[in-house]
Simulated assay, not measured.
Amino acid sequence: MAGERFELEPTVQALLRDIGIAPPVVLRRARLPADLFARRPIELSADEYYRFWTALEVEGGDRSLAVDIGRAISVEMFSPPLFAALCSTDLTAAARRVATYKALMGPLRMSAESGQGLTISYTWPTSAASAPPPLLAVVELVFWVALARIATREPVRPSRVTVANRPADLPRLEEYLGARVRTSGTYSITFGTADASRPFLTENEAMWRVFAPDLRRRLSDLDASATVTDRVRAALRDTLPAGDASIGAVTSRLATSPRTLQRQLRQEGTTFQGVLTATREELARHYLDVEGLRTTEVAYLLGYGDTTSFYRAFRAWTGVTPQSARRGTPEKALLGAPPP
């Protein structure tokens, strides 16, 4: 995602005022231009995007800001993700639609898996200078609860919610969601089958057909501006947690052949194995900073079949062990047992 820029919706300014936070104060704290909201489009790099949400979290103080934002979301806020979702037939269709265009709306990846209900999960790029601000990650989850309640006019509650770090305002967040929030290595939210398929009263396919072409064009422009290396990295972030680090899994996602992909990567001065190794190392450093995520889980998220393989690879990359990279964390607590 290096070099990519993401649009901040102009309606964020109205949202800030609705929750009682002055936009100029947030911009100043985030070291962003004072006239940012006067620009069209409002484009930010990944680091700037993160700084904005970090500044907002600081300005929120001890408030449960994610809950306040969830309560402030309304149909009057015209924004692509909200509009795309509200026009859908149900929550499952909304999640799939938003997942397609999410790359336009921020430095993150979203997946929507249906089966026993609907699970929406988020992954974050490691090209930014820091991990995603906790507020931003939690707001992404709160959005879906707010959306479901607006669109169905029912008190929809998720069946499961996971976060990477325990929120300071956990009691109020759980009260708003109507569900227990568990600490895990990922940010995800799951809805039961009945709620995932509950009809949206706001469905409007005719309006969506008017709105969709512009989103498709913007997504095409974004894809065209990304290098092949960037696209491979993005694909690997999706395939690695599924345990597949093969070039075949990546070429399937990118609709190309292994031979063509290798040739394109050579033209950019790299190889598939080089991108795979760099992506794994980058993700490993990020995951090891996530509180509560064990090294066995990190190995799994990077597509390794066992912890020992990850341990050896990490030492080859960095010259240190995973537990050494994790400041102040005892080795046995991370690995469960010393490596051979």
Results as ranks from 00 to 15, higher is better:
Val298Ile: 11
Arg160Ser: 04
Arg149Pro: 04
Arg157Ile: 00
Gly115Cys: 05
Thr229Gly: 08
Thr152Asp: 10
Ala249Leu: 12
Phe78Met: 13
Ser64Asn: 12
Arg285Leu: 14
Thr190Lys: 11
Gly319Phe: 15
Leu8Trp: 06
Pro155Glu: 06
Gly3Asn: 11
Pro24Asp: 05
Ser159Arg: 13
Thr119Ala: 04
Leu293Lys: 10
Gln116Ser: 12
Arg209Lys: 09
Val181Met: 04
Leu201Gln: 10
Ser197Leu: 14
Ala46Asn: 04
Glu203Ile: 00
Ser197Glu: 09
Leu261Cys: 04
Asp90Pro: 08
Ile21Arg: 06
Arg327Asp: 13
Trp53Asp: 03
Phe200Trp: 10
Ser252Cys: 02
Leu27Ile: 05
Ala224Pro: 02
Leu118His: 12
Glu331Ser: 13
Ala196Asn: 09
Arg51Phe: 08
Thr318Ala: 08
Phe143Cys: 03
Tyr49Asn: 14
Ala146Ser: 15
Ala84Asn: 05
Pro322Glu: 07
Val320Ala: 15
Ala14Thr: 03
Asp68Ile: 00
Arg51Ala: 13
Leu44Cys: 08
Ala129Met: 02
Ser111Met: 04
Phe78Leu: 13
His286Gly: 12
Ile189Met: 07
Pro258Gly: 04
Val181Cys: 07
Leu141Val: 10
Ala196Phe: 05
Ala22Ser: 13
Thr100Tyr: 15
Pro213Asn: 10
Arg231Val: 03
Pro339Tyr: 00
Gly303Cys: 05
Ala179Gln: 07
Gly303Arg: 06
Asp195Glu: 15
Glu297Cys: 01
Pro338Asp: 13
Gly3Glu: 09
Ala55Glu: 09
Met207Pro: 01
Val67Asn: 04
Asp223Gln: 12
Leu147Val: 07
Val58Thr: 11
Leu147Phe: 06
Thr308Gln: 13
Val98Thr: 01
Gly274Asp: 10
Leu32Val: 03
Thr123Trp: 06
Val26Asn: 11
Pro107His: 01
Gly117Asn: 03
Val232Cys: 11
